[in-house]
Design a protein around this nucleic acid. Structure first.
Length: 545
RNA sequence: GCGCCCGUAGCUCAGGGGACAGAGCAGCGGACUUCUAAUCCGCUGGACGCAGGUUCGAAUCCUGCCGGGCGCGCCA
């Protein structure tokens, strides 16, 4: 059990003993100011009404009543806080346990329902751009954190390989393809075509593989084959890029399979039967406004084709059918208005609305030379994730993406990112790890070999470092519960600071064996936590820098 | 206009209803004969957007306003 939990138990017992009061929700926290002890609680203040006494007086009595071997000292401070200081033995016992636990330190026992996290889900109509990158980094890190918190997680990528955008993309490729043979491929509206350079690349690969055969077959058939080829090309490209930043998926789910299996049709029929649809102007509408949407939405267009939401509802029904009961959808913030209609469809099928649990990731504002770079996929002026990775490197990119709350708009200054890449906070954290590795090389010892050592009295920097290390499991749990990945980078930077401060003041490899062993143990513990923490973000913990 | 999100140091951002609001970058000044100076220490820097409310106590919770972002297609 954590120290917070143990202290809460002690206080509960003390309140019972001294005041015959049963306390609930005892809040124990780590104070910002080290002068306020290792832990503090506001129970006397928060429960002033229950105690019907002066908070300072209550705190004084509780502080006196609390008696446990792991508490070295408890005292009243300020308006009625109780500050606790742990015994060095108790702290050290935890550090020893931390080292023994190794890579499992910070991980919880399996608990909770299996969870499915859907993220990225970028359409295969082009390369991943910097906005997708943020969703990929956030989603994958969240998945890792959830797993550490004990959940079983399935990562899924849903991709749209049918529909209007795909048709447009296939036409775009076809036009380039035709150009390679100095022929024309007639299209409706040239302005709506995709324009990136990669379109030409796809066309070139297409021509290399199939030659000019698409001029001889039926246009619709040709286009369908070109669409298959082009979407596969893009998905391969996307998978390769995801691999670069160490993002993996358990399942790639394609929209087309829902058409092929008749799933979309079945879902629409079910919605019709349930009475939540109606026909108007030749289209089938979902009465989504009954379920909190601003207005009703079209499911089946008057030309018989489906809107995007139709297969997506079927997809979520499929998720439910596969037995998932806890899901998270990670979407770009530009999809905020889309959620209510999807939820309406799900509820219309009799599935609980909270089955659709959405986490919106704010878009990335790209700056170049102080100017915002506006981009659009179709116009082809995107900054791709690959370009960014080429320029600043995988660890920097992954770390930088999740350093800030996914809820805040993030501006990514490309020039600054390149120029300052060696000042990026990720190196600060990694450097602490590399420094420790260097010490163990020098000591010809392995962090795993560090046995039990007595704490003696810990120096201030040693104690502060130790307390920070012991906070790691709580940070992981909290990040999982709040789905705030950025709490980890924030924590890791604080931890690295504590280590660098310790390192500057105390030499590890001293002659005094007891001191040396104690400091090596702290190094081993720090190395372990840094590695585990960086691992949750998909960032390397280098042995040398 | 309606809905969701966001306003904290010059910039990028942390901040579990509590004890003097923090970090990094930028600026200024120090510290390498010593386990990696990609580091450390100090200084400068703030109406926590504004106004009310709840509370013993609000950057944090509630309401209203102001400012910004996104959404409001038979696009995805």
């Amino acid at each position: 059990m954590s120290f917070e939990g143990k202290i809460a138990d002690e206080i509960r017992a003390a309140a019972r003993e001294a005041f015959d009061v049963e306390l609930e929700n005892i809040h124990v926290e780590r104070p910002n100011d080290p002068d306020h002890g290792d832990f503090a609680t506001n129970v006397a203040l928060a429960n002033a009404k229950v105690f019907k006494r002066n908070p300072r007086e209550v705190a004084g009595t509780l502080a006196e009543t609390v008696a446990a071997p792991f508490i070295a000292n408890s005292e009243v401070a300020g308006p009625g806080f109780i500050n606790f200081r742990l015994s060095s033995d108790a702290v050290w016992e935890e550090i020893a346990s931390l080292i023994r636990t190794g890579e499992r330190y910070g991980r919880s026992e399996p608990s909770g329902e299996p969870m499915q996290i859907e993220f990225v889900s970028a359409n295969p109509t082009g390369p991943m751009h910097v906005g997708h990158g943020r969703q990929a980094a956030y989603g994958d890190s969240l998945a890792r954190i959830m797993e550490a918190a004990g959940r079983k997680v399935s990562r899924e990528y849903y991709f749209n390989d049918g529909g209007n955008q795909i048709r447009l993309f296939a036409e775009s490729v076809a036009v380039r393809y035709a150009e390679l043979f100095e022929r024309e491929w007639p299209v409706g509206d040239p302005d709506s075509l995709y324009k990136g350079e990669y379109v030409e690349e796809v066309a070139r690969d297409l021509s290399e593989k199939y030659g000019d055969r698409f001029f001889d077959v039926d246009r619709g058939e040709a286009l369908s084959e070109i669409a298959d080829f082009s979407t596969r090309w893009c998905m391969d490209d996307i998978r390769r890029t995801l691999g670069r930043i160490r993002v993996r998926f358990d399942n790639f789910f394609n929209e087309k399979s829902l058409y092929d299996s008749g799933g979309v049709e079945k879902t629409i029929e079910k919605l019709k039967t349930s009475g939540h649809t109606y026909e108007e102007d030749g289209a089938v509408w979902l009465a989504s406004s009954e379920f909190g949407d601003d207005k009703d939405r079209v499911l089946v267009k008057s030309d018989g084709s489906y809107t995007y939401v139709a297969p997506d509802i079927a997809y979520h029904e499929d998720k439910w059918g596969r037995g998932f009961r806890a899901t998270v959808n990670i979407l770009g913030a530009d999809h905020a208005g889309y959620t209510p209609r999807l939820r309406a469809g799900i509820v219309g099928l009799g599935i609980p609305g909270d089955f659709l649990d959405v986490e919106l990731v704010r878009l990335v504002k790209l700056m170049r030379e102080g100017e915002e770079v506006k981009f659009s996929k179709r116009a082809g002026n995107v900054v791709t994730l690959d370009e960014l990775l080429d320029e600043v490197g995988e660890d920097v990119v992954r770390y930088f993406y999740v350093r800030f709350s996914h809820k805040t708009e993030m501006s990514f200054d490309l020039d600054l990112a390149i120029k300052q890449s060696d000042e990026n906070p990720v190196f600060y954290v990694q450097y602490a790890h590399a420094r420790i590795a260097s010490i163990f090389r020098r000591a010809e010892a392995s962090p795993e070999d560090v046995g039990e050592t007595t704490p003696d009295d810990l120096a201030s920097e040693e104690r502060i470092l130790a307390m920070e290390l012991l906070d790691f499991p709580r940070i992981v749990k909290n990040a999982a519960a709040k789905r705030e990945v950025h709490l980890l980078p924030t924590y890791l930077e604080t931890l690295a600071t504590r280590y660098h401060q310790f390192y500057t003041i105390h030499k590890v490899l001293v002659d005094d064996e007891e001191v040396r062993n104690r400091r090596l143990a702290l190094c081993a513990a720090t190395k372990n936590v840094l590695k585990n923490g960086l691992g949750l973000l998909g960032v390397h913990a280098p042995e040398r820098m």
